[in-house]
Simulated assay, not measured.
Amino acid sequence: MTKHINGAHPNWCRPEKKPVEIYMFIDPLCPECWALEPTLKKLHIEYGQYFKIRYIVSGQLASLNLNAKRKHETLAQQWEKAASRSGMSCDGNLWMENPIESPFIASIAIKAAELQGKHAGIKFLRKLQEVLFLEKLDISNFNVLKQCAADVQLDLDEFMNDIHGDSASKAFQCDLKITSEMEVDEIPTLVFFNENIEDEGLKVTGVYSYEVYVHILEELLAEKPTRQELPALEQFMQYYKLVAEKEIAVVYDMPLSQVKMKMKKWMLQQKVEKVPAKHGTFWRFLS
């Protein structure tokens, strides 16, 4: 669903340098946000020169009564459906075996990572998603969060101090305020703003095909954007480290069968290792 939202671009974060800014409303526990990863990777590679993304943690799932068994069962079913539909694996058994105790802590942790830079925050979010959806780990556990931070090379002392400090908490509260002001009630939601701060934002709720997002960019730019060439697949793998077959297929417009053949060849050459998942397969680049 797409629609224009009331109000101009928020004054506290006006676009700079790039003509389009995208507010992406996420929740670390949301499988549909995970399902958007292949499309976002392709969009960033091919048209990233035209936009920047600001991640807003919505806190949509933070208020769940996670002691309710029925809610666990519902979440498990939602995860399985999302994985089957998207090709991005997530294991719903987590909610029956090792349910998340305090979802809001994961949200605070994302904001704590962002205090070390936007890129650090993005890498940390991706790592959280990997350990949650693939390894079924409790991302509200401080040891898990600390290991994720270490894996993406954050300053651990600073990260742990920020989780318990005021700055990350205030940043999360700011995200909740933005979510409320923009009347975002479904995750994921992307809100596109152009350079004219008086123009309304274009709100896109849910997950759509790649072509839809490209068309939105064309509308906001009022011209056909120039598509950047894709990097060599090996360079792509080296940069992202761990990717799903689905992500490779979407980014490179390859059938999954061709991706599987390519990865099996690389596995024999010891360039990658297979990371089995409940739905589909992930591959880790061996540097």
Rank of each mutant, 00 (worst) to 15 (best):
L256K: 15
I216D: 01
S180G: 13
Q270S: 09
L176A: 13
E158G: 01
E198L: 14
P231N: 09
V259E: 11
N194F: 09
H279Q: 14
S180M: 15
K203R: 13
I163P: 00
M263Q: 00
R227Y: 05
Y213C: 02
Y208K: 10
M237E: 00
E245A: 07
K246T: 15
T281F: 11
L286E: 06
I187P: 04
H279T: 15
V259C: 12
T281H: 08
E234M: 10
I178R: 08
H164P: 01
Q153T: 15
E158W: 03
D253V: 12
F285E: 07
K177H: 05
T179V: 11
I187R: 01
R227W: 06
I178P: 03
A171N: 10
K224Q: 15
L176F: 10
H279V: 15
M261W: 07
L154I: 03
T226I: 09
K278I: 14
Y240K: 07
K278R: 15
E158T: 06
Q238R: 08
E211R: 09
V214E: 06
E229Y: 06
F172T: 00
A149F: 01
K177Q: 09
N194Q: 07
V207T: 06
K260W: 03
S209H: 14
P225G: 06
D166L: 10
T281S: 08
I248S: 06
E200R: 13
V204N: 00
L202R: 15
K264V: 10
A222F: 09
A149Y: 02
I216N: 08
L220E: 04
M263A: 01
V212H: 15
A168M: 03
N194V: 05
H279E: 14
M261N: 15
A249H: 08
M182A: 04
V250Q: 09
E229V: 15
H215G: 08
K278V: 14
P225N: 09
A249V: 12
M237R: 04
V275S: 04
G280F: 05
V214M: 02
D166V: 13
V204M: 11
L217W: 01
A171M: 07
I248P: 05
S169L: 10
E158N: 11
E181A: 08
I248E: 10
Y210K: 07
S287H: 14
P188F: 08
P255Q: 11
Q173C: 05
Y252P: 08
T179S: 13
S287I: 12
D155K: 00
A168C: 13
F192S: 02
K246C: 10
K264C: 06
D199N: 12
E247Q: 13
E181V: 02
K278H: 14
R284V: 06
R284T: 01
F172K: 06
T205V: 15
T226R: 14
C174Y: 13
V243F: 01
G201Y: 02
